Computed example of a mutant assay.
Amino acid sequence: MKRFVEGDDRKQVALLPECVDDYIGQDNPVRVIDAFVDELDLAELGFDGTTRAMTGRPSYHPGVMLKIYIYGYLNRIPSSRRLERECQRNVELMWLTGRLAPDFKTIADFRRNSGAAIRNVCRRFVELCRGLVDWLLKMRRLPEGLMLDRALARGAVRESDIARIVRRLSTFYRALPGAKMSASAYHAHFLSEIARNESVLTRIMTRQSFDIRRLCGIQLAMLTGVLNRLELRVAHGWIRECHGDLRPEHVCLTRPIGIIDCLEFSERLRTIDTLDEVGFLALECERLGAPKIGAVLLDAYAESMHDPVDEGLLHFYQSIRATVRGRPAAAHLLERKIGRVRHWRRRTLAYFELGASHARQCAAALQAGTQALTLDVSPME
């Protein structure tokens, strides 16, 4: 079989990912199904069983059943018996349901008893799609040459452009109420992100695993150092439903400023500190070779929002963000047919170095204040 494409030996021991999430790409449609259903008020739409009964055998939550139904609809699997089998063997459905596998009768009963509620969900989905179409039409009209990342590459961004961006963002932020999030939940969010960074990245970037674990350990120490500051940000209402993924390629220097690709589908991902969001945009400017533009952006934000930048907290946010952004960059290295391995490897290492650099700056800022934190963060190779 020398002249044929050969597969792997099925008895060969392989280091498989430790969690199902690693099998599901970031652009997989099941992530949209999951985010869409999680944002719905199922009781308002007419689903029964949204409140857990105090007695009797536990039932499947209608959200789980609705995800199975939508998955079957989108993948042309109308049969309840086929959906039962797919729940037992299909990795996408295992991810979507948390490895739950209702039997075919349960699936059929849900479909029969929830007809009106499912039609309400379809109406809600159509409304969402209409909004996306409007957004796509607006996006198509944005000139590529005026996107912020292109302007940064040409060195054509002026301070007046940054002032216009900040005015646009400030108007948006001021209209947002503080999110209903506890300080403990905000702290748990960062613990989860750091743990996930370490788990995913050490499996992909095996040669840098020591440096990754060290950086994640340092970020845990940083989290302890800024804990009181995080609590104050929550208490003062700076955690809001923001854009969620504000990068230079999402900002257009038109008049007025255009901002696209807000994470409309996930309230959880949008709910962040306004300083975190602007700090992320500044971080991306730094990665693109324009750190001075990022500094001007942060100064303008502080003045416009009357929110003096806490250097220790800012660099903590930026260190975490850089490491999180390293995850999807590293994930490209797992693709078998990829012609830009070196590009994605450089991108991943660039994010790691940014994460380490801002960790060092966070340590310096905390040491200059009341917190003492000694960190040994050397560059990665």
Rank of each mutant, 00 (worst) to 15 (best):
G98Y: 15
Y73A: 14
R82N: 09
Y23P: 01
E92M: 06
G355W: 07
E241Q: 12
A330P: 03
L45W: 04
S357F: 02
T202M: 02
S199A: 05
R150V: 12
K138N: 06
A363M: 04
T271M: 11
C129N: 04
W95Y: 15
A14T: 13
V278W: 10
S209N: 02
S184A: 13
D27T: 13
C122L: 07
H306Y: 06
E311R: 15
L253S: 01
H236N: 14
E193S: 04
V133S: 07
L269C: 04
D273A: 05
L223Q: 06
F47W: 07
G131H: 09
R336W: 10
R82S: 08
D149Y: 14
G178R: 15
T55H: 04
M139V: 11
D27Q: 08
W135N: 08
L152K: 06
F210W: 05
W135G: 07
R76A: 14
D161N: 09
V341L: 11
V226T: 06
A372E: 05
S79M: 13
T254Y: 12
R207G: 09
A185K: 15
E144G: 09
N113Q: 12
G369V: 05
I204N: 05
D48H: 05
V20H: 11
M94G: 03
S184L: 14
Q219A: 02
E86P: 03
V121L: 11
A365W: 01
L283T: 02
A364Q: 05
I33M: 04
S199V: 00
P256K: 13
L220H: 12
H250K: 05
Q12K: 13
R342Q: 11
L275V: 12
